[in-house]
Design a protein around this nucleic acid. Structure first.
Lengths: 145, 145
DNA sequence: AACAATCACTATCAATTTGATAGTAATAAA
DNA sequence: TTTATTACTATCAAATTGATAGTGATTGTT
């Protein structure tokens, strides 16, 4: 991770990593919908172009936001997973979702992300735990054979 | 505010408004540093070009994130103020700041935004209240004459 | 074993956006 | 009355985006 940030401000630097139209949507798909593959990201409503998706995935890997792996026994699919610090973006994503739900309600589907009426902190911890559990249950470790 | 959002997802729609390199930095300057004028935004560390700043201010106005006014007795300066829904972006900005401070610490100045060690909710309410108070104390209403 | 389908991309290229710099008009200060 | 300041707009090259097509490796089907 090289330092080509615009300034020393933590907000500006964070936006240098995730402050674009697409990066947080990829994280959203991973965190809330447990998507893991190129194909799954491509299938989202927002219709990201493959060239953009490819470049964003590379960028996110370079900033340690996601990792790229292959499952044992599947040489075709690449599996993208969130790093710890990406999982800590949950609170930002939940806040963004709450804000959008509140102020852009007219333009959005209701209940797009389930349980938004619950307590914020409960939502956040639930989302994080679900993701972590999913990863544990999904990944087949080499020494399982 | 026209509906040219990419999808019905509240996260995607919110990012359609503030998901770029500059918009949240303008809100940051207004919210945390109480900046109000074109010149003040231009003077930030991140060196926004005047053409970009101009287009972003217009965009933010069109989405009701900020308003543009003139002070009575000052025909030169334009005063930009945050709308209510922009003030409600505080929690997102504080979360972004906390995340950047935690995970990008090596690249950032320490204590860039004061009081980050306090409770999140206290920080948020303090920031909001300070901004609101500042606006009340700064603006000269026409009927003050 | 042969063929088709799927997956994860890369390539291409026009269109849009960015960003650096210079310039302008209106207001205010000296 | 000249000078400075403010808030922009204009220009234009460079970078990025986004739509579409194509490729190579793997996997499924007959």
């Amino acid at each position: 991770m090289e330092n080509n940030f615009r300034s020393g401000c933590p907000i500006a630097s964070t936006l240098d990593i995730i402050g674009d139209k697409w990066s947080l949507l990829i994280v959203r798909d991973m965190l809330f919908e447990h998507k893991m593959t190129f194909k799954e990201f491509s299938a989202s409503d927002e219709q990201i172009a493959p060239s953009i998706l490819s470049s964003r995935l590379k960028r996110l890997i370079s900033y340690d936001i996601i990792t790229k792996k292959k499952q044992v026994g599947n040489k075709k699919e690449n599996i993208y997973l969130l790093s710890e610090k990406a999982i800590e973006l949950t609170s930002i994503l939940v806040d963004v979702s709450i804000w959008g739900d509140k102020y852009l309600r007219d333009f959005n589907q209701i209940d797009n992300i389930e349980g938004l009426d619950q307590e914020r902190s409960l939502i956040i911890s639930t989302v994080k735990q679900r993701y972590t559990t999913m990863v544990q249950n999904t990944l087949i470790e080499p020494n399982d054979f």
